[in-house]
Design a protein around this nucleic acid. Structure first.
Lengths: 219, 219
DNA sequence: TTCTTGTCACCTAGGTGTTAATAT
DNA sequence: ATATTAACACCTAGGTGACAAGAA
């Protein structure tokens, strides 16, 4: 009764070992965790939550020479786990089922003293997002009993990092995240070709592998 | 148990006869209708709504020579009235009371065939916004009975227009709406001088409309 | 004349990876 | 060496009134 949206994209990242940036100020996930729900009771209320659990008890580092993640030791201590409540909660089954549910307000941080309610993760540790549906039957008043369902999508696990390690991950982020469009090399597929610029005689557009030099200028 | 936010700003506009732009695509109000609520039951659910009623049965036009609004005849037919539900609805009293409630998603349109759920108004007609609190007592199932309270703030009434008529209204909008900063004459008072900030004595100028509320924190 | 529409430059607000500097 | 931070250019997304053109 739950389907992960953008599953192919998650798989594409997961094949490379997905990396998610964590910052002091809080960073959104990309891809965003989005799901579709089915089979809820239209008129009953539900709360939707996410949390993140360590995949293992290890700390990692990225070996650039072999382009792979290697174990760097035992995991550091984890901050007390936090829960991200979907901001629409609580809402009726009819609400949750009428469109894709997006956790795009969720932010990841590496600041153990964060007071924004963001999810606190250790950099260089690997995490598995989990999704929880809490069903509050009508008639039962608060706290008597709750029906809890948890869904885990293995392809959404990721390495928390403060800066991208695997360049192929970086390139896939740039290619697929609209907010990173400024870093694209203008491949015909991804780049917003306005039109063919039909009547331009001399120089069409340069789709060239000329190095994307950023201004080395600094005055 | 309800206080209108930015009351002085509303009064300032109302003295000039407030004008609100209506467009086919939908236009937000400025000032935004914002209120603070008190005395709700923390654990009970409420829905918050707004609607707009004609102030009178007249159609107006603006007399530029006298800089005043004059009656231009009987009101045109009104589209079936619509209701704007605050997107947080339904929510607990504790939710509504913990911060200012802003109706900044509400949009006004003059398109009688609008299918976005926006509020449909006639240009050159005058309207009074109304605010409704609907209280659904627990234990009563849906539709049995509802407790309804309506609040009207006279200083929020306005003339719907497709283009501003009174230039003083235009200037007040430009001076106080951050999105119109591009049209400011850059008087030292109004313009966002990055430097001078420290040396400004008490002046109610800086009307910051949508204050980003910080949540009180748990852990 | 009077009113409405669509486009536009100019903003606010905030999400990207890059880079250089700084920790550890 | 390796990991983190803060500033930054470059985006997305969308809210302003001005203006010229169009409609009634």
């Amino acid at each position: 009764s739950t389907v992960l949206e953008m599953k192919e994209q998650w798989q594409q990242f997961n094949e490379l070992t997905t990396e998610m940036i964590v910052t002091k100020a809080g960073r959104r996930m990309f891809p965003v965790f989005q799901i579709r729900l089915y089979g809820m009771h239209q008129l009953e209320e539900y709360m939707l939550q996410m949390d993140f659990v360590p995949v293992d008890d290890k700390r990692y580092r990225y070996a650039f020479h072999s382009s792979s993640w290697v174990i760097a030791g035992k995991a550091d201590a984890h901050a007390p786990p936090r829960i991200h409540m979907h901001p629409d909660s609580p809402a009726l089954g009819s609400h949750w089922m009428k469109q894709v549910i997006s956790f795009d307000k969720l932010k990841l941080t590496n600041n153990p003293y964060d007071d924004n309610g963001y999810i606190i993760l250790n950099s260089m540790h690997r995490y598995q997002p989990r999704f929880h549906v809490i069903y509050n039957p009508k008639g039962e008043e608060q706290g008597n009993y709750q029906n809890f369902k948890t869904f885990v999508f293995s392809e959404t696990k990721f390495m928390a990092v403060t800066a991208y390690q695997n360049q192929r991950v970086t390139q896939l982020k740039i290619a697929s995240n609209p907010f990173a469009k400024g870093f694209r090399d203008c491949d015909p597929d991804d780049c917003g070709m306005p039109d063919m610029m039909g009547a331009m005689p001399g120089q069409g557009r340069q789709l060239t592998p000329t190095k994307p030099e950023k201004e080395p200028e600094r005055s």
